[in-house]
Design a protein around this nucleic acid. Structure first.
Lengths: 328, 328
DNA sequence: TACAGCCATGTTGACGTAAACATGAAGCAA
DNA sequence: TTGCTTCATGTTTACGTCAACATGGCTGTA
């Protein structure tokens, strides 16, 4: 900065004013300074600026696997929203979801230069009592328990599961089998609970829950079992990947979809419309979740009032994998 | 820091030494300082540290869509490798891949607090002449032209396409049709070129290239056309999503896979093994690409010598979607 | 002319840290 | 004992920026 000031024949303060777009600088001076900046390739030092201002203009995002469809879309939306607000994203991945790793990540976070944090951890794995985020650091949680002391932004899991289950019941199926997500996942639990509640509400028998782990393999394994059971006519998988695995199992077993068995997923991945048959599923608006969480966080950072929770609705996308229950 | 120093009855410098784990501090003093830190909830200020050291311990990642399978896996690997080296990741997304947006991202980058940058932009969209990264800022490019002045880490696209094409030729197919990626993508071009070269090398006819855009829709559209052509017996799609779209088109047209037509993809997404039929494909090791690019970048940041390019091999994963050419 | 008010610009200092140098005590060999 | 080394710790300073205050020229009015 001093070099620029020298080059332009002004003081450092004037350079600072120009670089921050302040109005009280003479036009000719401003141009001289800008030219000097270009000539010298001046870049404001963000560390010094952050030190001075006490703000980093950066948002931390804590995530487990990036490799899940939903997390990725959410991250994308968070990044876009943050960029639009002039914030950058600092990614804090947690490779192995052990409690120790989570604590470690939070410790590292304390050292990070962030003004706020979005936590995208769906599991019970972090015990809030044990993680001490710096006081006053705004936090927003995505896809977790509502029992946290931080604001929560989340998809309406219960509504989505209800839509899927009712869709199948309305097609005339006696009941709906459920391939669930892992027991540690809040969203998996909420989908399962809502599936069960919807069945009861409609007076349908509640079959045993099939525990999965979001993977195609889990869907495949349970799909093989279900395919062998002639009484099964409708399956609701807790995500599209498990639905895909189930579809494969049904194909291998020679069961027709949807003529003999209907399958419904959850997520609406880009590929789901091209599965064979194209998958009926519950669409989640991850982009909206991401955008809303950033908005909430920014309110926490720049605003003053308390931040409200946000629930994002879902939508049932009906495709060829679900159809009327077979006669008889 | 001053408070901690006062509380522990030492100088700020000693606090600094403790906080950096230096060895030349008496054990009793160290404990006293650590205790004071805990009592006061002291967190080192990363901005001040960065200002003093001129290092941020952060790596910038510039990406187009996060929502592509490969990018996501790569980002995951980059994040893990960076975390292992004590670096954090600053994500710089480019929402709309126009040239202006790219330049904007680079401008923003200049303001960012990063020690190096990984560029994951596969298209020609950025003209190096026009983007002025700060001199001396280490850069590694993933999945781009080898004509950049920066080190490149990339999957061996040509080898992968050759493996796929030869696999089909060896199964007795007269030739192989290709659903290509977008013309702006370097990796798409390399796969196409290698496909073509392999066909020629084996004396096979080279059918017209079918231009796609990575999407399942593109695969579906071209798949419908190919399904209607009785001479087509083998399809090599430039990625798994287009292969999935093609599979759907073939199903709809009632063409048997692989009895009548074989299909091979590229990427090996997690879902590909569960497609119907399970997809033969070329596996890319995105995690390796990510890890290597971070290693290369760190060498550029912390090392001194020139950084070499890295090529990561691929592997053909044979599944049920490819089989011998139909007789006659 | 005199004085107030405004505006562009300059000067000073502080943000929190760590490198460089300084100090002083303890240990050890001649 | 003397002189030299080693090691823990303290002091000073600079990193680059920007807020706060200071300065000085210009304009307009009484």
């Amino acid at each position: 900065m001093a070099d620029v000031a020298l080059e332009a024949g002004v003081s450092g303060q004037t350079v600072s004013r120009v670089s921050n777009g302040r109005s009280n600088v003479d036009e000719s001076t401003r141009e001289r300074v800008l030219e000097a900046m270009n000539r010298l390739g001046y870049r404001p030092n963000s560390a010094a600026r952050a030190l001075r201002l006490g703000r980093f203009r950066s948002i931390g995002v804590i995530m487990f696997t990036l490799s899940s469809f939903g997390n990725m879309r959410t991250l994308d939306a968070i990044a876009s929203a943050a960029a639009a607000a002039g914030y950058s994203i600092t990614l804090i991945p947690i490779a192995h979801p052990t409690r120790g790793a989570v604590s470690g990540a939070f410790d590292r976070l304390n050292q990070q230069a962030v003004d706020g944090v979005v936590i995208v951890i769906e599991a019970h794995l972090f015990d809030e009592a044990h993680l001490d985020l710096p006081d006053g650091l705004p936090v927003v949680v995505i896809d977790s328990s509502a029992r946290t002391r931080y604001p929560v932004v989340d998809t309406d899991q219960a509504e989505g599961a209800r839509l899927a289950t009712e869709h199948l019941l309305e097609l005339g199926h006696q009941t709906v089998w459920h391939i669930a997500g892992p027991a540690e996942s809040y969203s998996a639990i909420r989908r399962r609970d809502s599936w069960e509640a919807t069945l009861r509400q409609h007076g349908a028998v509640v079959p045993p829950v099939l525990a999965g782990d979001w993977s195609t393999d889990a869907g495949y394994r349970h799909g093989l079992v279900l395919a062998a059971d002639p009484t099964v006519t409708a399956i609701f998988a807790a995500n599209d990947q498990m639905a895909l695995g189930a579809l494969r199992a049904l194909h291998e077993a020679g069961r027709a979809v949807p003529a003999e068995i209907s399958v419904v997923g959850f997520d609406d991945m880009e590929e789901s419309a091209s599965f064979w048959p194209p998958l009926t599923t519950v669409r989640q608006y991850f982009d909206k979740v991401g955008a809303r969480s950033v908005a909430a966080l920014l309110e926490g950072i720049e605003g003053d009032g308390p931040v409200a929770n946000v629930t994002v609705p879902t939508r049932l996308i009906v495709r060829a994998s679900s159809g009327p229950a077979p006669a008889g």
